[in-house]
């Protein structure tokens, strides 16, 4: 399955200024993200991480610059060859009037897939995310962690080229967060979408990513590869992991100090 999704994002000279704002949120930002990468966006609050994610998702238009989706053959994506993008927002935002099954199958239904045809894929994902037997539950019957699992399953159901996640685990307790991190990591190594994750947690970024990009003052402050390899079970206890985590936290503190 590895390397099947070949789309690359090329963001060039991205600027974004919201009306009524003195300073632009993003300015002259360059970033290329290759197919199959797991990139975490870190940085202090207000540095433009979420804005960048919303730009990449197509929910915002840049004030300056261009965002290009480049297909494996080098052509710009357009028309019917647009990449499949999935978004996992901070809140699980399930449709309360639909069951877990119908929530997860929604993106497939929007493409005209019949309910019966969607079923194997949906049930498979629910099993992978520990939601087996929950398909007929209503969202209000689920805990916060389970709702987030459903939200992730819904994002993955179309086997997206890009999985964009905006602090999806911020509201969860640490244990749930770790477990979901493990599950997300497993799904990533199996299916290899390109993942872009906005997070405040250095540990989460270090554990999950193949690359960490830090933003500061609306541009890329630094860009660091994370070379722990695909197998990461038990990684959190390793000295190398702890060292990298400490190094990244120190860099972020330095960025913060430079701001004030």
């Amino acid at each position: 399955m590895a390397e099947t999704h070949g789309f690359r994002i090329e963001a060039r000279g991205i600027g974004k200024r919201f009306s009524g704002q003195a300073a632009p949120t993003l300015s002259a930002l360059d970033l290329t993200i290759g197919g199959g990468e797991f990139v975490s966006l870190l940085g202090p609050s207000g540095c433009g991480k979420s804005t960048l994610l919303r730009l990449l998702a197509g929910l915002l238009r840049p004030s300056e610059g261009t965002i290009r989706w480049v297909a494996p053959d080098g052509s710009s994506a357009s028309g019917t060859r647009l990449p499949d993008i999935a978004l996992v927002p901070q809140e699980p935002t399930l449709l309360p009037w639909k069951t877990v099954f119908d929530n997860v199958s929604l993106p497939l239904r929007l493409r005209g897939t019949a309910r019966a045809a969607a079923a194997p894929r949906v049930l498979d994902l629910l099993r992978a995310l520990g939601l087996e037997g929950r398909e007929k539950s209503w969202p209000r019957e689920l805990s916060g962690g389970m709702k987030m699992r459903v939200s992730i399953a819904r994002a993955l159901v179309t086997e997206p080229d890009f999985l964009l996640m905006d602090e999806p685990f911020a509201a969860l307790d640490e244990l749930t967060r770790h477990r979901l991190n493990d599950d997300l990591r497993a799904l990533y190594t199996q299916r290899r979408p390109t993942v872009i994750l906005v997070t405040h947690s250095v540990e989460e970024a270090t554990f999950l990513s193949t690359r960490i990009v830090a933003l500061s003052r609306g541009r890329v402050a630094w860009d660091l590869p994370v070379d722990f390899g695909p197998e990461r079970a038990g990684l959190r206890d390793h000295a190398a992991f702890q060292a990298l985590r400490g190094d990244i936290a120190a860099r972020l503190r330095a960025d913060q100090a430079a701001l004030s």
Binding site: A57, G58, L59, A86, L87, P89, T93, L110, L164
Partner: peptide, 22 residues
């Protein structure tokens, strides 16, 4: 909610789908 609208936008839902499903 805006988040739900965003979800339908990212998934390129048609305006009829948005009306009847959301």
């Amino acid at each position: 909610s805006h988040d739900l609208h965003d979800l339908f936008t990212v998934r390129r839902a048609t305006s009829l789908q948005r009306l009847f499903l959301l």
